[in-house]
Structures are given as C-alpha cells and as structure tokens.
Design a binder for these strands. Sequence first.
DNA 1: CAGTATCCGATGCGATACTG
DNA 2: CAGTATCGCATCGGATACTG
Lengths: 232, 232
Amino acid sequence: MSKSQNYGQFCPVARAAEIVASRWTIIILRELLAGSTKFNDLRNGVPQMSPSLLSKRLSELEEAGIVEKTPMTKGRGFHYFVTDSGKELSPIIFTLGIWGQKHVLSEFSKHELDPTLLMWDIQRRIQILLFPEKGRFVAEFLIKGAPAERRSWWIIVHDRNVELCLQHPGHQIDLYIESNLRSLTNIWMGICSIEAAKKEKKLSLSGNDKYIKNFSKWFLLSPFAEYYPGQN
Amino acid sequence: MSKSQNYGQFCPVARAAEIVASRWTIIILRELLAGSTKFNDLRNGVPQMSPSLLSKRLSELEEAGIVEKTPMTKGRGFHYFVTDSGKELSPIIFTLGIWGQKHVLSEFSKHELDPTLLMWDIQRRIQILLFPEKGRFVAEFLIKGAPAERRSWWIIVHDRNVELCLQHPGHQIDLYIESNLRSLTNIWMGICSIEAAKKEKKLSLSGNDKYIKNFSKWFLLSPFAEYYPGQN
DNA sequence: CAGTATCCGATGCGATACTG
DNA sequence: CAGTATCGCATCGGATACTG
C-alpha cells in the first residue's frame, strides 16, 4: 500500500492487489469476515503479527473503505467490521482458500501447527444453537504434543455463548476430547475424518454419551474441510 | 514465498496467500491467463518489473505447480503457461479485478497512465476473426499527451494475426484513431463510453467508413469495463 | 532475444517497550 | 485491555550489467 507497493498500472487487478495483497492483509480480512470485531480477538487470529502492524493494517483497510470502526458501547476501544465493499471480498478470499485446500501441499510443517490457533478456530465454529439455551456444556480438550501450558483447553457453551479457556472452569465436564496436535489439526482441516481418526486411535471421546453421539453435529470442521481432495 | 513471507498458519487461505500474494505475482498470473506465453511478452505486461525478478517469480510459480514451461519449438527460450491448478486461479483473479473496478477510486494518477501498456492491452483484445482472412487492416493510433516516441502506434491485422508497432508499417492506413492518453485509458476501462468520448471530442475516428461503423465490434474494451459502476 | 548475476539501497516489518 | 511509538535489521526488489 505504500508508494513502493504500487504497481503503476491502471489495471483493476493491479489496483486491487495493491490494497489486498500486502502482507497479512488477507489473513486479517479472513478474521474480520469470520466475525471477529475486537482488536484482541483479531490478534488471536494472527498471533504471529505484531500489534503495531495489525493496527497499521486496520488503518490502511479503513482508508481503503474496506473496514470501519465504531467505539465499543462499553469499555474503551473499537469494534472493527467490514463495509459492504469489504464483504464483496468474501467470496474471493473463500475461493482462494478452497484453491489452497486443493492445491497446496496438505502436510503441515511443525511451526504451522499451533494449538492456540487451532482451538480458537474450533471454538468459533461450535454450533451453539444445538445446545440448550439454559444450562451449561463443558468440553475438555487434551492435546498431546502441545507445550504443557497449552495442552489442556476447556470450551464452555453457556447462554448462547462460547468461551475458550486454558484454566479448568471448575464445572463438571460433559465431554473429554483427546487427540494430538497434528491429528486434531488434520481432522479440523478435513484431511482425516473423525471416524477414521477414532478407528486409528488418534482421537478419543469420552463422557456423556449424548454428546459423543452428536459430536459431528455441533463440532464443525474448518469451512475448507469439505474441499480436501483426498479420498476421505 | 521466502521464509519470512510465510505466515506459519495451517489455514489454506494463508497458505494460498503465501504463494499468490507476493509482489507482482498476481499481475504475472493475469498476463499468463490472458494468454501471454513468451518471456518478453510477459515483460510487456509488467514493464516496471526487472527481468530478474520476473524470472524469479516464474520459477517460484513453477515450483508451486502453477506454471509450466516448455522449450520453444523454434528459437531459444521457453513458453510459459499455467497448469490446471493455475487455471483455477483465473476466476479468483478476475473477481478481484471486478472488485477493483467497482471499489477502487477510478481516477488514474499520472504514473499509472502508460501508453505502451495501454496499447499492448488493446492489441490483445482486437477481434481478429472479424477481419477478412486474406488482406490487411492497418489502424493508426495517435495518442496526444504521450511522450513523442510513443505517440504514434500502428496495429496491423493480417493473416489472423495482430501486430503492434511504433514505426509506420508503410502500408495504407484504413483507420485513424486520435485521442489523448487519459481519455483513451478511460474509454478502455469503461469509465467513458465511446459514444460519449466522440461527442466530447475526446476521441476521433477517421478513414474507411466501414471500420468506423463497426469500431466497437472489433475494438473490445477491457474485460473489466462492463463492471464500472458509473452511469455510463 | 531470453534470461541470469550481482550489487546495494529503501523499507517493511518484527521485537520490544510504553501509555491511557 | 486497546492500542502506539521507537528502533534496527533483514530482505525484498530495483537498477544495471552481463551472457549464450
């Protein structure tokens, strides 16, 4: 977006790319389009990015008319959200993701496996509407192979809200999910089916039968999972 | 695409962006998808890029399975073309262009106006099939406001081929097109209609009546022209 | 013509620290 | 929590020259 990022061409592909193809920008848009609005929620989606750069990118997107912000009703800070113009980028980014899912090597290098990112993504896709409005559901995830302080996660569905935390919430656990980082990532990405993972002992579910049975109903996979070209 | 360009995320959007969102890459793909295959034809489409960087990008795209090359049947060098995987990027890039045409400010800064690029684009869209197979058609373009050595252009359609040149080809001229750089660019981009430009004396056609009449039939505008949101 | 090699400067961006 | 400011290095890529 800076001077040197310009292509000096009148072609609209070039002019769009100047805005959208700068480093991290597409990833930020993915997060915004997935529904994150708060600065630190966005950070969760791009943990490798420095906050100053995130801040800069958000300003640039605002400048380009793709993002708007409004002060938060309570507390300080802003809600960030895409404008109508930004929403029109949604199919482009989604299709790019499908392309990636189909054509980029589907093995993950070690530094791409990140339990925090994974759990954040998972949490966002939990189908809260499938849980009773009253009452509380608590799932405990144990991710073997993850660093100790990020091995155990709890997801709580309560009051039509999802919460992800790294501390035992104290409530009774309805479901235990046990896997390892690579397997759970592969499941999430559609590279390995839930059934296959269970059979191969890469995934184990225990606890309340009802939740085990309906696991694949409320535990949705990545939106790109279904485009994985493999046989599973 | 280098180490530092990686996002360290398993998300396919990120992994696709690592490949596709590096500087110039989208523009090169646009050129390839538009049908250019030779190194120097590609250069015509990205004149601001150094040949070494173009060469590097082509290698990277090859590495990523998006581009392939085959030795030219005559002469040295290679033909570059997109693989099937690369072709699947076509709708993404096209849609990105449409987005740009709709949402990026449609005024062009001076350094974006480039007669060479414009004529190269125009030449590529000439509908050769509308010209008799035998015989020759020659159009002379006069682009006022362009630097002296790139003011006069000739497009020759002959034998189902188009040729663009900067020297008078010697043959008789069938049609004279006169405009200025900004107006012709605006016409090409669909920002100003041919009719409107004629009325406002921003475009003048003279020569063989037959070719004047059918001008808009064989002189196609940019593929993005029809998406310009203005009233024209 | 069809690229490659080298050099070097600008700048993007990562790390860290800081503020209301 | 919600960002901003600063610093300094790595690297990207532009310019130029060179080769078969």
